[in-house]
Amino acid sequence: MAEHRRGDLRDITHEMLSKGRELAEKNGASLTALLLGHDIKGFASKLTDQANEVWVVDDLRLKNFNAEAYQRILSSLITEYKPLLTLIGHTAFGVDLAPRLAIELGIPLTTDCLDIDFEGGVLSVIRQMYGGKVNAEALLKEAESYIVTIRPAAFEAKEGEPLGGEIVDVASSLKEDVKNKKFIEYVEPSVGDVDVTAAEIIIAIGRGIKDKDNITLVQELADALGGVLACSRPIVDKEWLPKDRQVGTSGKTVKPKLYIAMGISGAFQHVAGMKSSDLVFVVNKDAKAPFFSVADYGVINDMFKIVPALKNKIYEIKTIT
C-alpha cells in the first residue's frame, strides 16, 4: 500500500517495497505496489522499478487520504485477489486504515512491526513493547491472508535490480460518495523563532527534565555550545516548549552534526526524527533506556549532574581560548 501526501511519495512506501521484495522472492510470490489517489501516474512510474506490478486506482474522491474510501477499495481488491500479505505503513495513514480493514475482512493483523518472516506458512513478526525496552517475537493466527503495519524507518529502502513492473489501471470500485468521514483541509504546523531542522548542534530534553523551571539550565548549555534546544513530545504536550522544537514522527526530522539527548527514553517515534544525526550522545540514568542502542556514546547518569559539569567545562575552554 503506497503512501503519499500532498504530491510526495512518502519514504515508508520505498521501505515497505524493499522488505516486500525480499519476502516475495523468498516465497516465490509477486510484489504489487498499490497506489490510490487522483492524478498519480507520476508516482506509478517511480515505483515500477521496485515492484512486479504497480496498480493504480484513480478517483477524484481518493485525492486526499480518507480511511473510509481507501478501505472500500482495498477490501474489494483483497477479497478478489487474496494477497498473501498486505503491508501498510504504521503511520497516521495506516493506523487509521489497517485495523478496520482487517476486521471487515476477518484477516489477522498485527501492527508496528520491525521485522516480518514466513515460516512454514506461518507469519511471524518482531515488534516492540514497553516503549522499546522489550522486543517481542509474535506469531499471527494461521490464515490465507495477513495484514501487517510496518514501523517507519524499520527497513532500509534498498535499491535492487530494477524490476520493470507493469503499470495496471484498476477501475475504482467506489460507487457512492463516502458519507461518514470527509476530509476538509490541512492545518500547517506553527512556525516559531527557531528552526531545529537547520541546526548543527541540538541538545534535546525529555520528560527527565521533570520541571519546566529546569529548562533554563539546559538552554544555557545549548547556548554555550552554540546549539539549539529541542525536545521529546511530552515536553510539548505539557506546553513547556513550542511544538516546533519537538523531534520525531509527529514533530521535526533533524540531521544535526551533534545530537545530545538528555532524559529521553528513546521511543521510536522520537528516534525516527533524529536517526540521521552524525554524532549522538545519550544521557539517561536508566541503563536500560532504549535510546542507548542508537547512541554513539552513552552516559548512564543523572542529567542534572552532567549538565552543570558540561557547562563548566565549556566556560573553562572559552575563557582559556
Binding site: 503511520t91 490541512y186 492545518v187 504546523p189 509527529s250 514533530g251 521535526k252
Partner: peptide, 8 residues
C-alpha cells in the same frame, strides 16, 4: 499527521 501537520 507526521511532521506536526494536521488534517481536519
Amino acid at each position: 499527521l507526521e511532521g506536526g501537520l494536521e488534517e481536519v
